[in-house]
């Protein structure tokens, strides 16, 4: 049998082009296979070969979604592949979004077999888990040594037309697919057994987990914004110069509350960003690009808003766990309510 032709999609970082300063690199086919693709090719062995690696900068992809998608699609088509593998993206949010988008696109447009790999809390998981097969990885590239063999194993399974097992068996994210299986015992028996276990207080595994919908209904609109007290919260990591609370550049363990009552605007001299997940050049030169202090002060003076709350809140939304973000937001909300803040502008990078 001829070797299966695989296209690999990766970002600028794993292509060895550079970090945040190169996140605007346009889609292209790598001239030589990047190291990560070579490693994957080795693991795929004799049954498959990587015929092309398509590379795109994470910011470029997410900011130019439609054009990036069509360019990348053309590049993939030209390679005439049997399969596409994207990532692994670990906990890199923009990369995870790109991997999910590319996999879904080749499935829809080319009917191509494809999958990706990333960490459970990568935003790409929630967006794409229903449509895309995602192998679970650790949250950082330190887990590469474990992730690549899992990726190769899955690729070979799919190439050989083998059965893909349950998410537990395969280490994949649950897609919510239901498949028919033969069971030793009929349904009524299994249900009664589960009930008995439940009554005894023993652990059991349901065959039909209920989906969790966690949505918060929109709060009513502000009646008169010219009377409203408005606060700014950001996940973009804007902090006073030199980051007094030492908020971490990724996986932040805290948030900060910063007094802005004496500021008419934010500037390079007094504020900066602590965020390590995007190119900080623009936010450092002019922090108003993330926390629009200059404009809000103007609007306050013109009476277009009631007032700007004297503090803003900031954390770094880069690989920060959902559990921590929830905790910070609960604390922040308490403080906002205690200070009669009417509405929040939350900015994200």
């Amino acid at each position: 049998m001829a070797k299966a032709r695989v296209v690999h999609y990766i970002n600028q970082f794993f292509a060895g082009i550079g970090g945040e300063e190169k996140a605007n690199v346009k889609p292209h086919v790598s001239v030589e296979l990047p190291v990560i693709s070579q490693q994957l090719a080795k693991l795929l062995g004799d049954e498959a070969e990587i015929v092309a690696t398509v590379v795109c900068g994470d910011s470029y992809f997410n900011e130019n979604l439609e054009s990036a998608k069509s360019e990348i699609l053309e590049m993939i088509k030209k390679a005439n592949p049997d399969m596409l593998i994207a990532g692994p993206a670990f906990n890199a949010g923009r990369y995870g979004m790109a991997c999910g988008t590319v996999v879904k696109m080749v499935q829809d447009e080319m009917d191509l077999k494809a999958f990706t790999a990333m960490y459970e809390e990568n935003p790409g998981v929630d967006v794409f888990k229903k449509d895309v097969l995602i192998i679970k990885t650790s949250d950082s590239a330190a887990g590469m040594r474990k992730a690549l063999p899992s990726v190769a194993k899955m690729a070979l399974k799919i190439i050989n037309g083998e059965n893909i097992g349950t998410p537990d068996e395969e280490g994949t994210i649950t897609r919510g697919l239901r498949v028919n299986v033969f069971s030793e015992e009929r349904g009524s028996m299994r249900a009664v057994n589960m009930l008995v276990k439940k009554l005894k207080g023993e652990s059991f595994t349901t065959e039909y987990p209920m989906p969790i919908f966690d949505r918060v209904a929109a709060k009513p609109a502000i009646k008169d914004i010219t009377k409203a007290k408005i606060a700014v919260v950001t996940s973009g990591g804007i902090v006073p110069k030199h980051n007094p609370d030492r908020i971490e550049s990724s996986s932040a363990s805290k948030y900060g509350r910063y007094d802005i009552s004496t500021f008419k605007t934010l500037s390079e001299a007094d504020h900066e960003t602590a965020h390590g997940g995007y190119d900080p050049t623009y936010a450092n030169l002019d922090p108003n690009r993330v926390v629009p202090m200059d404009v809000l002060r103007d609007l306050e003076h013109e009476g277009k808003i009631g007032s700007l709350f004297q503090y803003f809140y900031s954390t770094v939304g880069n690989g920060t766990s959902v559990a921590n973000s929830v905790k910070y937001a609960e604390d922040i909300a308490k403080d906002l309510l205690a200070n009669n803040v009417d509405a929040v502008i939350l900015t994200s990078t």
């Binding site: 918060v216 919260v233 937001a329 309510l337 509405a343 939350l346 900015t347 994200s348």
Partner: peptide, 18 residues
């Protein structure tokens, strides 16, 4: 964070690129 602040009772507008 958007959701939790809104859950607590304050309307939030989210300004973001993605």
């Amino acid at each position: 964070m958007v959701k939790e602040i809104e859950r607590a009772g304050i309307p939030v507008v989210h300004m973001c690129t993605v």
